[in-house]
């Protein structure tokens, strides 16, 4: 491409189209950010605890945050979710990597069949299992106040189903690497640990990140399992119970906003730090699923 050969008319056109694109991007950014800006403003409103028709509070203050941490069980919910998130991110990553690596790079009898079974299992709506999972956990005494280990168990146990993105990533690594290592006498285990894993940093971090974030948003299963016990709730269930009836919505709405902000901040920071890997994971793996 030789810039000098371009006509001036083309350049003007280019500039015009770029301006249009900038305009669109700016409008989009505003639309995408507005709800979160609103959320933050509402969380600082002191003069009323319910929904109002304006954005900027008449009186700023940390009351909602203070109430959130002193008058509700929010610290417990936060701790629960954090614990779940940490355990799940570690165990789930191991499981997903095992699953996807095997299906992507090892060839064995029944591999196709296994993948087809997984695919067909995914056609069933997950909600069907809620009741039975809840009952089984309740007999194992892993509900109510003990729901943290119960939820970890359920999240982790079925996590093998979500191997697609990471398999897509492994598919892109050239098979000649394995073959070369095998010729050198490496066992399959050594190929996995010494050859492939070092190349897989983006997908490992991507898997950890998504596994960690999952429990923060899970609502339905967590609601069932916590069984109305505050000590066993995660943030989503806890915040939802805070606004579940009209009366409690009126009393707790701004506190709910504050809770939303508190939950969003650490995850957003984490996300910003690891965004590079997240992007690589999605772009590298997702489409192949």
């Amino acid at each position: 491409m030789n810039e000098n050969k371009k006509h001036m008319g083309l350049k003007a056109k280019e500039r015009l189209s770029n301006t249009v694109i900038y305009a669109i991007l700016i409008v989009m950014s505003i639309v995408w950010l507005i709800p979160f800006v609103f959320l933050v403003f509402e969380s600082f409103r002191v003069e009323s605890t319910y929904q109002v028709g304006y954005v900027i509070p008449k009186q700023f203050g940390f009351d909602n945050y203070i109430n959130l941490f002193t008058k509700t069980d929010f610290p417990i919910w936060f701790k629960n979710t954090l614990v779940i998130g940490l355990f799940v991110s570690v165990i789930q990553t191991v499981i997903v990597l095992c699953m996807s690596y095997t299906l992507s790079r090892l060839r064995f009898k029944g591999r196709k069949g296994l993948m087809n079974i997984m695919l067909v299992l995914g056609f069933f709506p997950g909600f069907l299992s809620l009741v039975i999972l809840y009952k089984v956990l309740s007999w194992l005494n892993l509900t109510s106040a003990n729901s943290v280990p119960g939820l970890i168990l359920v999240y982790v146990a079925s996590s093998g189903m979500g191997y697609y993105v990471s398999k897509g990533f492994f598919d892109t690594i050239s098979r000649s690497l394995d073959e070369a290592a095998r010729v050198d006498g490496a066992t399959r285990f050594q190929v996995f640990t010494k050859v492939i894993m070092p190349l897989s940093k983006p997908i490992v971090i991507y898997t950890i990140l998504t596994a960690f974030m999952g429990p923060w948003g899970d609502f339905m299963l967590a609601k069932y399992v916590s069984h109305a016990t505050s000590a066993g709730m995660n943030v989503a269930v806890g915040l939802q119970t805070m606004i579940s009836t009209p009366a409690s919505l009126a009393a707790n709405y701004t506190m709910f906003c504050a809770g939303g902000v508190v939950v969003a901040i650490p995850i957003t920071i984490l996300f910003m730090c690891l965004q590079k890997y997240y992007v690589e994971g999605v772009t590298g793996g997702a489409v192949k699923g």
């Binding site: 989009m28 995408w32 939802q240 939303g260 995850i267 957003t268 996300f271 910003m272």
Partner: peptide
């Protein structure tokens, strides 16, 4: 970054 950030906030809240 701006667009991706929004997916960091749990859907439940947004």
């Amino acid at each position: 970054g701006i667009l991706v950030l929004t997916s960091a906030v749990p859907q439940f809240i947004s």
